[in-house]
Design a protein around this nucleic acid. Sequence first.
DNA 1: TCTTAAAAAGAATTTTTTGTCCTTTAAAGA
DNA 2: TCTTTAAAGGACAAAAAATTCTTTTTAAGA
Lengths: 143, 143
Amino acid sequence: MTVIFSKQCEIALQAVLFLSIKKDKIIYKATDISKELKVPKEFVSKMLQKLTYSGIVGSKKGKKGGFYLAKRPSQIKLIDIVKAIDGLEIFNKCVLGFPGCSSEEPCPVHETWGKIREETYEMLSKESLEQLKEKTVSKLLKI
Amino acid sequence: MTVIFSKQCEIALQAVLFLSIKKDKIIYKATDISKELKVPKEFVSKMLQKLTYSGIVGSKKGKKGGFYLAKRPSQIKLIDIVKAIDGLEIFNKCVLGFPGCSSEEPCPVHETWGKIREETYEMLSKESLEQLKEKTVSKLLKI
DNA sequence: TCTTAAAAAGAATTTTTTGTCCTTTAAAGA
DNA sequence: TCTTTAAAGGACAAAAAATTCTTTTTAAGA
Protein backbone atom coordinates (compact mmCIF):
# COMPACT_ATOMS: atom_id res chain seq x y z
CA MET A 1 0.00 0.00 0.00
CA THR A 2 1.05 3.53 -0.73
CA VAL A 3 0.80 6.36 1.79
CA ILE A 4 -1.62 8.78 0.17
CA PHE A 5 -0.80 8.97 -3.53
CA SER A 6 -1.32 6.21 -6.05
CA LYS A 7 1.75 4.37 -7.30
CA GLN A 8 1.34 6.21 -10.58
CA CYS A 9 1.40 9.53 -8.83
CA GLU A 10 4.46 8.59 -6.79
CA ILE A 11 6.35 7.71 -9.94
CA ALA A 12 5.23 10.91 -11.64
CA LEU A 13 6.42 12.96 -8.66
CA GLN A 14 9.74 11.16 -8.58
CA ALA A 15 10.24 11.57 -12.30
CA VAL A 16 9.55 15.29 -12.19
CA LEU A 17 11.87 15.71 -9.22
CA PHE A 18 14.50 13.86 -11.22
CA LEU A 19 14.10 16.30 -14.10
CA SER A 20 14.06 19.30 -11.77
CA ILE A 21 17.61 18.83 -10.58
CA LYS A 22 18.92 18.79 -14.15
CA LYS A 23 19.69 21.75 -16.31
CA ASP A 24 16.83 23.55 -18.04
CA LYS A 25 15.32 21.70 -20.96
CA ILE A 26 17.93 19.02 -20.99
CA ILE A 27 16.25 15.95 -22.40
CA TYR A 28 16.25 12.62 -20.63
CA LYS A 29 14.84 9.48 -22.13
CA ALA A 30 12.40 7.30 -20.24
CA THR A 31 14.98 4.51 -20.01
CA ASP A 32 17.40 6.67 -18.05
CA ILE A 33 14.74 7.89 -15.67
CA SER A 34 13.38 4.40 -15.18
CA LYS A 35 16.83 3.07 -14.32
CA GLU A 36 17.35 5.72 -11.72
CA LEU A 37 13.92 5.29 -10.18
CA LYS A 38 14.14 1.51 -10.48
CA VAL A 39 10.74 1.09 -12.07
CA PRO A 40 9.71 -0.20 -15.51
CA LYS A 41 10.41 2.13 -18.42
CA GLU A 42 6.87 1.77 -19.78
CA PHE A 43 5.40 2.87 -16.49
CA VAL A 44 7.56 5.96 -16.28
CA SER A 45 6.82 6.97 -19.84
CA LYS A 46 3.09 6.49 -19.35
CA MET A 47 3.24 8.89 -16.41
CA LEU A 48 5.39 11.39 -18.22
CA GLN A 49 2.98 11.22 -21.14
CA LYS A 50 0.15 12.17 -18.82
CA LEU A 51 2.18 15.07 -17.53
CA THR A 52 2.77 16.09 -21.11
CA TYR A 53 -0.96 16.58 -21.69
CA SER A 54 -0.99 18.74 -18.58
CA GLY A 55 1.82 20.88 -19.92
CA ILE A 56 4.15 20.17 -17.02
CA VAL A 57 6.69 18.24 -19.02
CA GLY A 58 7.55 18.39 -22.68
CA SER A 59 8.58 15.53 -24.91
CA LYS A 60 10.45 15.01 -28.09
CA LYS A 61 10.12 11.95 -30.29
CA GLY A 62 12.77 10.21 -32.31
CA LYS A 63 16.48 9.90 -31.96
CA LYS A 64 17.77 12.05 -29.11
CA GLY A 65 14.19 12.37 -27.95
CA GLY A 66 12.95 12.17 -24.40
CA PHE A 67 11.32 14.24 -21.69
CA TYR A 68 12.09 17.60 -20.11
CA LEU A 69 10.37 20.14 -17.90
CA ALA A 70 8.10 22.33 -19.99
CA LYS A 71 8.12 25.13 -17.42
CA ARG A 72 10.72 26.68 -15.20
CA PRO A 73 11.23 24.80 -11.92
CA SER A 74 10.06 27.97 -10.18
CA GLN A 75 6.72 27.60 -11.95
CA ILE A 76 6.06 24.00 -10.91
CA LYS A 77 4.69 22.81 -7.57
CA LEU A 78 4.32 19.22 -6.45
CA ILE A 79 0.58 19.75 -6.18
CA ASP A 80 0.47 20.28 -9.96
CA ILE A 81 1.66 16.74 -10.48
CA VAL A 82 -0.76 15.35 -7.90
CA LYS A 83 -3.58 17.25 -9.57
CA ALA A 84 -2.63 15.87 -12.99
CA ILE A 85 -2.41 12.25 -11.91
CA ASP A 86 -4.59 11.56 -8.86
CA GLY A 87 -6.69 14.70 -8.87
CA LEU A 88 -7.49 16.75 -5.79
CA GLU A 89 -10.29 14.51 -4.56
CA ILE A 90 -8.40 13.39 -1.46
CA PHE A 91 -8.49 16.97 -0.23
CA ASN A 92 -12.27 16.92 -0.24
CA LYS A 93 -13.11 13.54 1.17
CA CYS A 94 -13.75 12.28 4.67
CA VAL A 95 -10.71 10.46 5.99
CA LEU A 96 -12.98 7.86 7.60
CA GLY A 97 -14.96 7.46 4.41
CA PHE A 98 -18.25 8.77 5.77
CA PRO A 99 -20.47 10.07 3.01
CA GLY A 100 -21.68 13.60 3.55
CA CYS A 101 -19.05 14.51 6.10
CA SER A 102 -19.08 18.28 6.54
CA SER A 103 -18.89 20.90 9.24
CA GLU A 104 -22.66 20.54 9.66
CA GLU A 105 -22.44 16.78 10.00
CA PRO A 106 -18.83 16.11 10.94
CA CYS A 107 -17.20 12.76 11.56
CA PRO A 108 -15.39 12.39 14.90
CA VAL A 109 -12.06 13.49 13.46
CA HIS A 110 -13.37 16.05 11.00
CA GLU A 111 -11.70 19.09 12.52
CA THR A 112 -8.36 17.51 13.27
CA TRP A 113 -8.18 16.02 9.82
CA GLY A 114 -9.09 19.36 8.31
CA LYS A 115 -5.93 20.85 9.79
CA ILE A 116 -3.76 17.96 8.70
CA ARG A 117 -5.20 18.11 5.22
CA GLU A 118 -4.36 21.77 4.97
CA GLU A 119 -0.81 21.17 6.09
CA THR A 120 -0.52 18.45 3.49
CA TYR A 121 -1.83 20.72 0.78
CA GLU A 122 0.60 23.38 1.90
CA MET A 123 3.48 20.94 1.83
CA LEU A 124 2.72 20.33 -1.84
CA SER A 125 1.95 23.87 -2.90
CA LYS A 126 4.17 26.16 -0.87
CA GLU A 127 7.55 25.53 -2.45
CA SER A 128 8.32 25.23 -6.14
CA LEU A 129 10.68 22.68 -7.61
CA GLU A 130 13.24 25.46 -7.68
CA GLN A 131 12.96 25.87 -3.92
CA LEU A 132 12.97 22.13 -3.29
CA LYS A 133 16.01 21.63 -5.46
CA GLU A 134 18.67 21.39 -2.75
CA LYS A 135 16.67 18.88 -0.78
CA THR A 136 16.02 16.90 -3.92
CA VAL A 137 19.65 16.78 -4.92
CA SER A 138 20.59 15.23 -1.61
CA LYS A 139 18.17 12.40 -2.37
CA LEU A 140 18.83 11.92 -6.06
CA LEU A 141 22.50 12.77 -5.97
CA LYS A 142 23.87 9.60 -7.45
CA ILE A 143 23.33 10.49 -11.11
CA MET B 1 -9.87 6.59 -4.31
CA THR B 2 -9.80 6.69 -0.55
CA VAL B 3 -7.89 9.28 1.45
CA ILE B 4 -5.36 7.24 3.39
CA PHE B 5 -7.05 4.08 4.60
CA SER B 6 -8.25 1.23 2.42
CA LYS B 7 -11.97 0.91 1.83
CA GLN B 8 -11.95 -2.09 4.14
CA CYS B 9 -10.36 -0.07 6.88
CA GLU B 10 -12.84 2.76 6.44
CA ILE B 11 -15.73 0.35 6.85
CA ALA B 12 -14.11 -1.24 9.90
CA LEU B 13 -13.63 2.17 11.49
CA GLN B 14 -17.21 3.16 10.74
CA ALA B 15 -18.58 -0.11 12.09
CA VAL B 16 -16.65 0.21 15.33
CA LEU B 17 -17.77 3.81 15.73
CA PHE B 18 -21.33 2.60 15.22
CA LEU B 19 -20.92 0.05 18.01
CA SER B 20 -19.21 2.57 20.28
CA ILE B 21 -22.23 4.81 20.59
CA LYS B 22 -24.40 1.91 21.74
CA LYS B 23 -24.64 0.47 25.20
CA ASP B 24 -21.95 -1.91 26.39
CA LYS B 25 -22.03 -5.37 24.89
CA ILE B 26 -25.32 -4.83 23.15
CA ILE B 27 -25.28 -7.08 20.12
CA TYR B 28 -25.91 -5.81 16.63
CA LYS B 29 -26.15 -8.04 13.63
CA ALA B 30 -24.19 -7.33 10.48
CA THR B 31 -27.39 -6.59 8.59
CA ASP B 32 -28.26 -3.69 10.88
CA ILE B 33 -24.79 -2.21 10.72
CA SER B 34 -24.66 -2.62 6.96
CA LYS B 35 -27.97 -0.82 6.53
CA GLU B 36 -26.79 2.12 8.52
CA LEU B 37 -23.41 2.31 6.80
CA LYS B 38 -25.02 1.66 3.43
CA VAL B 39 -22.58 -1.04 2.41
CA PRO B 40 -23.13 -4.75 1.71
CA LYS B 41 -23.69 -6.97 4.73
CA GLU B 42 -21.00 -9.41 3.62
CA PHE B 43 -18.42 -6.66 3.50
CA VAL B 44 -19.23 -5.40 6.97
CA SER B 45 -19.15 -8.86 8.47
CA LYS B 46 -15.81 -9.65 6.83
CA MET B 47 -14.33 -6.59 8.47
CA LEU B 48 -15.89 -7.30 11.83
CA GLN B 49 -14.60 -10.85 11.61
CA LYS B 50 -11.09 -9.50 11.18
CA LEU B 51 -11.58 -7.27 14.19
CA THR B 52 -12.74 -10.32 16.10
CA TYR B 53 -9.36 -12.03 15.61
CA SER B 54 -7.76 -8.88 16.96
CA GLY B 55 -9.93 -8.95 20.06
CA ILE B 56 -11.47 -5.55 19.42
CA VAL B 57 -14.96 -6.79 18.80
CA GLY B 58 -16.68 -9.92 19.99
CA SER B 59 -19.18 -12.03 18.09
CA LYS B 60 -21.93 -14.47 18.82
CA LYS B 61 -23.18 -17.00 16.33
CA GLY B 62 -26.71 -18.23 15.81
CA LYS B 63 -30.08 -16.70 16.45
CA LYS B 64 -29.77 -13.38 18.24
CA GLY B 65 -26.13 -13.39 17.32
CA GLY B 66 -24.12 -10.46 16.09
CA PHE B 67 -21.21 -8.24 16.96
CA TYR B 68 -20.32 -6.12 19.97
CA LEU B 69 -17.30 -4.29 21.36
CA ALA B 70 -15.11 -6.75 23.22
CA LYS B 71 -13.46 -4.01 25.28
CA ARG B 72 -14.64 -0.88 26.99
CA PRO B 73 -14.83 2.13 24.66
CA SER B 74 -12.22 3.76 26.89
CA GLN B 75 -9.84 0.93 25.98
CA ILE B 76 -10.19 1.26 22.20
CA LYS B 77 -8.44 3.77 19.97
CA LEU B 78 -9.02 4.27 16.25
CA ILE B 79 -5.40 3.34 15.64
CA ASP B 80 -6.18 -0.17 16.91
CA ILE B 81 -8.60 -0.68 14.05
CA VAL B 82 -6.18 0.76 11.51
CA LYS B 83 -3.47 -1.52 12.86
CA ALA B 84 -5.74 -4.55 12.58
CA ILE B 85 -6.88 -3.90 9.01
CA ASP B 86 -4.28 -1.87 7.10
CA GLY B 87 -1.34 -2.24 9.44
CA LEU B 88 0.93 0.60 10.47
CA GLU B 89 3.04 0.54 7.31
CA ILE B 90 1.82 3.94 6.12
CA PHE B 91 3.47 5.50 9.16
CA ASN B 92 6.83 4.19 8.06
CA LYS B 93 6.83 4.84 4.35
CA CYS B 94 7.98 7.73 2.22
CA VAL B 95 5.00 9.80 1.11
CA LEU B 96 6.62 10.23 -2.31
CA GLY B 97 7.37 6.52 -2.55
CA PHE B 98 11.16 6.84 -2.54
CA PRO B 99 12.81 3.66 -1.36
CA GLY B 100 15.25 4.17 1.49
CA CYS B 101 13.90 7.55 2.52
CA SER B 102 15.32 8.38 5.94
CA SER B 103 16.81 11.27 7.85
CA GLU B 104 20.18 10.33 6.36
CA GLU B 105 18.81 10.29 2.84
CA PRO B 106 15.61 12.33 3.00
CA CYS B 107 13.20 13.07 0.18
CA PRO B 108 12.41 16.76 -0.37
CA VAL B 109 9.37 16.66 1.93
CA HIS B 110 10.70 14.21 4.47
CA GLU B 111 10.65 16.56 7.44
CA THR B 112 7.34 18.20 6.74
CA TRP B 113 5.68 14.89 6.16
CA GLY B 114 7.23 13.55 9.34
CA LYS B 115 5.33 16.15 11.31
CA ILE B 116 2.08 15.56 9.47
CA ARG B 117 2.44 11.84 9.95
CA GLU B 118 2.84 12.32 13.67
CA GLU B 119 -0.22 14.49 13.87
CA THR B 120 -2.13 11.85 11.99
CA TYR B 121 -0.95 9.14 14.34
CA GLU B 122 -1.90 11.31 17.26
CA MET B 123 -5.35 11.94 15.82
CA LEU B 124 -5.89 8.20 15.83
CA SER B 125 -4.30 7.35 19.14
CA LYS B 126 -4.94 10.26 21.47
CA GLU B 127 -8.61 9.84 22.17
CA SER B 128 -10.45 6.62 22.94
CA LEU B 129 -13.86 5.73 21.56
CA GLU B 130 -15.23 6.87 24.90
CA GLN B 131 -13.78 10.32 24.36
CA LEU B 132 -14.89 10.47 20.74
CA LYS B 133 -18.40 9.40 21.63
CA GLU B 134 -20.10 12.79 21.56
CA LYS B 135 -18.62 13.68 18.22
CA THR B 136 -19.58 10.30 16.87
CA VAL B 137 -23.17 10.57 18.02
CA SER B 138 -23.59 13.79 16.10
CA LYS B 139 -22.60 11.94 12.94
CA LEU B 140 -24.39 8.66 13.50
CA LEU B 141 -27.37 10.04 15.33
CA LYS B 142 -30.10 8.73 13.12
CA ILE B 143 -30.28 5.22 14.59
C1' DT C 1 -35.40 -32.37 18.78
C1' DC C 2 -36.30 -29.39 14.92
C1' DT C 3 -36.44 -25.06 12.67
C1' DT C 4 -34.60 -20.77 12.08
C1' DA C 5 -31.24 -17.16 12.13
C1' DA C 6 -26.81 -15.57 12.39
C1' DA C 7 -21.60 -15.57 12.15
C1' DA C 8 -17.50 -18.10 10.21
C1' DA C 9 -15.04 -19.61 6.52
C1' DG C 10 -13.67 -19.85 2.25
C1' DA C 11 -14.45 -19.94 -2.76
C1' DA C 12 -15.62 -17.34 -6.76
C1' DT C 13 -16.26 -13.19 -9.19
C1' DT C 14 -15.63 -8.47 -10.46
C1' DT C 15 -13.20 -4.31 -10.61
C1' DT C 16 -9.20 -1.56 -10.27
C1' DT C 17 -4.47 -0.94 -10.51
C1' DT C 18 -0.16 -2.04 -12.16
C1' DG C 19 2.85 -3.59 -15.53
C1' DT C 20 4.07 -5.40 -20.43
C1' DC C 21 4.14 -5.63 -25.28
C1' DC C 22 3.54 -4.26 -29.90
C1' DT C 23 2.61 -1.10 -33.58
C1' DT C 24 2.73 3.61 -35.26
C1' DT C 25 4.69 8.14 -35.68
C1' DA C 26 8.41 11.34 -35.61
C1' DA C 27 13.05 13.03 -35.57
C1' DA C 28 18.25 12.70 -36.17
C1' DG C 29 21.93 11.82 -38.60
C1' DA C 30 24.57 8.99 -41.79
C1' DT D 1 16.76 8.67 -48.60
C1' DC D 2 17.54 5.05 -45.20
C1' DT D 3 18.46 3.46 -40.65
C1' DT D 4 18.09 4.04 -35.97
C1' DT D 5 16.02 5.62 -31.87
C1' DA D 6 12.53 7.34 -28.97
C1' DA D 7 7.73 8.79 -27.64
C1' DA D 8 2.63 7.87 -28.46
C1' DG D 9 -0.95 4.96 -28.21
C1' DG D 10 -3.54 1.02 -27.77
C1' DA D 11 -4.24 -3.68 -26.41
C1' DC D 12 -3.39 -6.92 -23.22
C1' DA D 13 -1.69 -9.60 -18.97
C1' DA D 14 -0.97 -9.99 -14.14
C1' DA D 15 -1.75 -8.73 -9.58
C1' DA D 16 -4.24 -6.71 -6.01
C1' DA D 17 -8.37 -5.11 -3.95
C1' DA D 18 -13.15 -5.16 -3.45
C1' DT D 19 -17.39 -7.55 -3.56
C1' DT D 20 -20.53 -11.45 -3.78
C1' DC D 21 -21.88 -16.17 -3.15
C1' DT D 22 -22.04 -20.65 -0.94
C1' DT D 23 -21.43 -23.80 2.62
C1' DT D 24 -20.63 -24.86 7.42
C1' DT D 25 -21.06 -24.10 12.25
C1' DT D 26 -23.44 -22.48 16.20
C1' DA D 27 -27.07 -20.93 19.11
C1' DA D 28 -32.01 -19.77 20.29
C1' DG D 29 -36.29 -20.98 21.02
C1' DA D 30 -40.55 -23.33 19.61
